[in-house]
C-alpha cells in the first residue's frame, strides 16, 4: 500500500524520465542523504498529530492528559469500547450508507455524462463541462436554507437518502471531469470497431468502455467516497438524530468534559481511518481528482 507512489507509466517519455532520474541519482549520491534526512523530518512533523491521535486512542484517560506527555504506556481498548457504548455505530452506518450510496449514484450518472461530453460530444459540451465545475465552486452555505426548506417540506429532513443525493451532486463535477479525462485517453480504433458493430450507447458504455476505464472509475469512486465521508456542513445542517453521520457525532466533543482526550482520540481514529486508508490506496490518482482531472 505504501509503495504505490512512483509507478512507472508505460509511455516512451516516462521511461526517458526514469533514465534521467537514474542518471541524477548516480551523480548526486552524497546530497541525497541530506535530502532524505530533511524530507523524513518534515514528513514526520506533518504526520505527528495523526500519530499522536493513534497513540492516545489506546491510552487510559489519566495517561492522555499529562505534562509532560506520556510516551510509554500499556495499550488498552477501553476507549474504543466506551465510544461504541456511546452509540457510535448508528452514526458510522449512516456515514457508510451516505458515502457508498452517493458514490454508486455518482458513478452511474457520471460515466454516461462524461461519455456525452467527450467521445460522443453533445452540442456546447464545453459549456456543460464548465457548468458542472462552477457548481462545485459555489459555497454550500449559499444554498443551504432553500435546501433545508425543500427537504423539510417533502419530509426528507434528517434522511440518509436525501444526504446521499446531496453528496452525489456535490461530487458529480469532480467525477465527470475525472472520468472524462480517462475517456479522452482511450484509443479511437476500439470505439470505432464497436460503432461499426452497431452497438447501442448503453451497450457500448457497458461492454466496451467501462472495462477499459475500470481503474479510472475505481479511482474516481474512491475520491468521491473520501469527500462524502469527510463532509460536515451538509450533515450538520440537514440531519439531527436519525440520519446523523460520524462528523456530527464528533460535535459532542466540542467542549472538554473532564478527562476525555483518549476517548476523543479513539472516536477520531474510527472516524478518520477509513478515509486515510482509502486515500493511501488512491494516492496515485488523488492529484487528478483534486485538480478536476486537469493535472495528471
Amino acid at each position: 500500500m505504501l509503495e504505490t507512489a512512483p509507478t512507472p507509466p508505460a509511455s516512451g517519455e516516462a521511461s526517458h524520465s526514469e533514465r534521467a532520474a537514474a542518471a541524477r541519482r548516480r551523480t548526486r549520491r552524497p546530497r541525497s542523504l541530506g535530502v532524505a534526512a530533511l524530507a523524513w523530518t518534515v514528513g514526520l512533523v506533518f504526520f505527528f498529530p495523526v500519530l499522536w491521535m493513534f497513540l492516545t486512542g489506546f491510552k487510559h484517560e489519566s495517561e492522555a492528559s499529562t505534562t509532560p506527555p506520556t510516551w510509554l504506556f500499556v495499550p488498552t481498548f477501553d476507549q474504543f469500547r466506551a465510544i461504541l457504548g456511546r452509540d457510535f455505530l448508528p452514526y458510522f452506518l449512516n456515514s457508510l450508507t451516505a458515502s457508498v450510496l452517493s458514490t454508486v449514484l455518482v458513478v452511474v450518472l457520471a460515466v454516461p455524462a462524461a461519455y456525452a461530453l467527450s467521445l460522443a460530444p453533445v452540442r456546447r459540451w464545453k459549456d456543460a463541462l464548465f457548468f458542472f465545475i462552477s457548481t462545485r465552486m459555489m459555497p454550500p452555505v449559499a444554498i443551504i436554507l432553500p435546501l433545508y426548506i425543500i427537504a423539510n417540506n417533502i419530509g426528507l429532513l434528517d434522511n440518509v437518502t436525501m444526504l446521499s443525493v446531496v453528496y452525489t451532486v456535490m461530487n458529480l463535477p469532480i467525477a465527470v471531469w475525472m472520468i472524462r479525462s480517462f475517456l479522452v485517453e482511450l484509443p479511437a480504433e476500439v470505439l470505432e470497431a464497436s460503432r461499426v458493430d452497431g452497438a447501442s450507447i448503453g451497450t457500448e458504455i457497458r461492454r466496451i468502455i467501462l472495462p477499459m476505464i475500470a481503474p479510472g472509475v475505481a479511482a474516481t469512486a474512491l475520491i468521491c467516497f473520501i469527500f462524502a465521508w469527510n463532509e460536515f456542513f451538509f450533515a450538520v445542517s440537514l440531519t439531527s438524530t436519525k440520519a446523523a453521520t460520524v462528523p456530527v457525532f464528533l460535535t459532542g466533543f466540542i467542549t472538554a468534559e473532564g478527562l476525555f482526550l483518549a476517548q476523543l482520540s479513539a472516536a477520531s481514529m474510527m472516524a478518520a481511518l477509513p478515509v486515510i486508508l482509502a486515500g493511501w490506496v488512491a494516492q496515485k490518482w488523488l492529484v487528478r481528482g483534486l485538480s478536476l482531472g486537469a493535472v495528471k
Partner: peptide, 10 residues
C-alpha cells in the same frame, strides 16, 4: 498527504 485525508472535523 495524510493531513489532507484526515476528516476535517477530526
Amino acid at each position: 498527504i495524510t493531513p489532507f485525508l484526515v476528516m476535517p472535523a477530526v
